[in-house]
């Protein structure tokens, strides 16, 4: 019995489940969109290498988008992605309705109004991405809040999380799509609670800059 137990532990340490993964020489599947960007010589590279199976949530339609997919995953609760998809598309509809109406009511500043909800979402996320973060590090028995730079991936995660948190925080009588839509619109225009939160984090980082060296010493 003990022998089996040891084998089980060893297999979990050395990652014996490699059978379920694609070997490293497999290439990522390409979408039509990506293929258009590549020139022909680059494409020929893919002729003779094996390609991984496509992910089942990726698609080539007008409706698919990288950031939309990510946002959808963050909205999802209990694996109910169909609901999340509905909520997000409803959010986009509300954004578009607000923006389109504004556009048509004031024909003078047509250049200033963006009706593309996806672009607005991207803009909102970019605007609310933090550069630094505070982490608690223990030095000499005291916990210091130390400013630490964060990776690009984490900054995107935080931005989207803050957007969603702000949306969830509001009055429960208003539906999520509506709340989220206004948060996105605010953030895209560089205003609102999410941007304020980001600025607060940055301010704290700046005031704690004296502790910055605790990160490595």
């Amino acid at each position: 019995m003990a022998v089996f137990y040891r084998i089980a532990i060893q297999s979990s340490i050395y990652g014996c489940r490699s059978m379920s993964m694609f070997p490293k020489h497999f290439g990522d599947p390409l979408r039509k969109k990506d293929m258009e960007d590549l020139n022909k010589s680059e494409l020929t590279k893919f002729y003779h290498i094996p390609i991984k199976a496509a992910l089942n949530n990726h698609s080539d339609t007008v409706f698919s988008d990288e950031i939309k997919l990510k946002m959808m995953n963050y909205i999802t609760k209990n694996g109910n992605k169909a609901l999340a998809r509905g909520l997000l598309s409803r959010t986009f509809e509300i954004i578009k309705r607000a923006q389109t109406e504004r556009l048509h009511l004031s024909p003078t500043d047509k250049q200033n109004v963006n009706t593309n909800a996806e672009k607005l979402l991207i803009e909102a996320v970019e605007n609310s991405r933090p550069l630094l973060q505070l982490t608690s590090i223990k030095r000499g028995g005291v916990n210091y809040q130390v400013p630490v730079p964060i990776t690009k991936k984490r900054s995107y995660f935080l931005a989207m999380k803050w957007l969603l948190d702000a949306a969830f925080e509001k009055d429960k009588k208003v539906c999520l799509p509506e709340r989220l839509a206004w948060e996105i619109l605010d953030a895209a225009h560089g205003q609102g609670r999410v941007i304020k939160k980001k600025d607060d984090v940055h301010k704290q980082c700046e005031s704690n800059r004296a502790y910055a060296h605790y990160r490595w010493s």
Binding site: K110, Q111, N112, V113, N114, T115, N116, K119, L120, E123, N127, L131, A188, H189, G190, Q191, I195, D199, H202, K203, E206
Partner: peptide, 15 residues
Amino acid sequence: STQLQRNVVQLSTNA
């Protein structure tokens, strides 16, 4: 800090 100083109300969403 430079980012903090920027005008918050600036419209950054030009279509």
